[in-house]
Design a binder for these strands. Structure first.
Lengths: 211, 211
DNA sequence: CCGCGAAGTGGCGGTAACTCTCATAAGCTT
DNA sequence: AAGCTTATGAGAGTTACCGCCACTTCGCGG
C-alpha cells in the first residue's frame, strides 16, 4: 500500500545504532532527497540515476544497492508492517469497513503530517509515470494480501479462496482509484474524506441504490 | 482489459486489402508467433528483441515499429472495441452484473476458442513477469473507464464522480484477481465459472454474509 | 506501363537502467 | 593494532528503446 504513505524518517531512532547503520540511513535519505528534488526540478524521466548519485554524493552503483529500481526510490514503503500491526490490534468483530477506515486514517494522518509534499508528489507520479504507477500497484496488491488474511480471520473463509481474493482486491482497486482521483484533481480535497466516501461505496454500493 | 483476450487473427479479412496491408498483417503475426514460441522455449526475460527479430525474419527496428514495447507483443489487445460494442448493445435496464457477465462470457468464449494457448500463456506471464502484469493492468484500467461510462449511463451518476470511479475500479480489481487466480492455480478451472463466482461476490458481497 | 511519391524497412549510433565483478576503503571485533 | 566483515566505487557488459538516414518496395495517375 504505497500510494499514500510516508517512509519512516523523523522518528527518533538514533539510540545505540552503530556508526555504520547510521551512515546507511543517512545515505538512504540523501538518495531519496536528491531524487525528490531533481524530480521537482526536471520531472521524472529527465532525472537519471547518475544525476541522483551526483547530488547525493554517492556512486551510481550505490544507488542501486539501496534501491532495486528507480521507481523504488520514489516509493519506499515502510508501511506494510505498520498496517499489519494496526490490522492486528483492531477488534475481530469490527466490520471490515470500519477497520479499514481506521487503518487508513491512521496511516494518512501520519503520512500527511510527516511528509506532506512527498505524499503529494508520490501520488502525482503515480498518475503521470506508468512505471511508478506499476510499482505502486504491486505494493497495493501486497497490502491486499494482508487485508485478505485479516478478512479470512474475521469471516472464517479460506484466505486462498477465489471469493476472498476477489473481494480483497476489489477493495484495494477502489482505494487505488481514490489516490488517482486525488492526484488528478490536483489534491484539492482532503484525501481522508475521499477515502471515507470510497469505503462507503465499497461497503454499501453506489449511492443511488442498485449495487 | 487485456488479461484474457485474443487478438484478432483468424477471421477472414483478406478481401481486397492491398499487398502492403496484407504484408503488414503477416509481419505482425510473424513477430507475435516468434515471440510466443521463444518465450515458451526460454522464458520471457531470456528472450531478446534481437532473437524475436531473427526468428520473425525482420530487423529489430521493425519489431519496435510494430510494437512499442516488448510487453505489448505479448499483450496485443484488440478487445476494447469489442467490449464497447457489447456494452452498448445491452439493454440499459439490465443490472451491471448481468451485463458484465454477458460481456465477459462473450469475450472469453471467443478468446478460448481462437487462441487457447496464447490466452493461457498470457495470463501466466501476467503472474510471472511484472512488466507484463503492469501492462495488463493499464489495459484493465482502460476497460474500467469504459465500464464507468456504461455505469454512468445506467445510473445517472456523473462518470467523473469519485463514487463511480471507485466502484468501477473495484470491479475491475476483482476481475483482475480472477485472472491471477486462474493462472496461479495452473488454469485448472474454467475461467468462465471463476468470473461468474467473482461477479457474485462483487454483486452480493462475500458469501457468508457481512459485506 | 512507367515513373514518382509514399510507405515500409534496415542499419547504426545513442541513451539509460540495470547487473556483475573486483579492488579498495571504512567500520567493527578481539 | 591486526584481521574480518561490510560498504563503496569503478568499470565493463547487457538490453530495451529512440531517432536518423538511406534504400527498397508498393501503388497510383498519367
Amino acid at each position: 500500500m504505497t500510494f499514500m504513505t510516508a517512509a519512516r524518517t523523523t522518528p527518533a531512532d538514533p539510540p545505540q545504532l552503530g556508526l555504520r547503520e547510521r551512515k546507511k540511513i543517512k545515505t538512504r535519505q540523501a538518495i531519496r532527497a536528491a531524487t525528490y528534488a531533481l524530480i521537482e526540478e526536471q520531472g521524472y524521466d529527465a532525472t537519471t540515476i547518475e544525476q541522483i548519485a551526483d547530488r547525493a554524493e554517492v556512486s551510481p552503483s550505490t544507488v542501486f544497492r539501496y534501491f532495486p529500481t528507480k521507481e523504488d526510490i520514489v516509493i519506499t514503503d515502510a508501511w506494510d508492517p505498520v498496517m499489519t500491526e494496526e490490522l492486528r490490534t483492531r477488534p475481530l468483530d469490527e466490520s471490515w469497513a470500519a477497520t479499514l477506515r481506521h487503518v487508513m486514517r491512521t496511516a494518512l494522518d501520519r503520512s500527511l503530517a510527516e511528509e506532506p509534499e512527498v505524499t503529494r508528489l508520490r501520488t502525482r507520479l503515480g498518475v503521470e509515470v506508468p512505471a511508478v504507477r506499476a510499482r505502486m500497484i504491486e505494493s497495493t496488491a501486497a497490502t491486499g494480501r494482508l487485508l485478505r488474511d485479516a478478512l479470512a480471520e474475521r469471516s472464517g473463509l479460506d484466505p486462498d479462496s477465489l471469493e476472498l481474493r476477489v473481494f480483497a482486491m476489489s477493495v484495494m482497486g477502489g482505494l487505488m482509484e481514490v489516490s488517482h482521483y486525488w492526484a488528478e484533481t490536483g489534491h484539492r480535497d482532503d484525501i481522508r474524506d475521499l477515502v471515507d466516501r470510497a469505503l462507503d461505496v465499497l461497503e454499501h454500493g453506489l449511492p443511488t441504490g442498485k449495487a
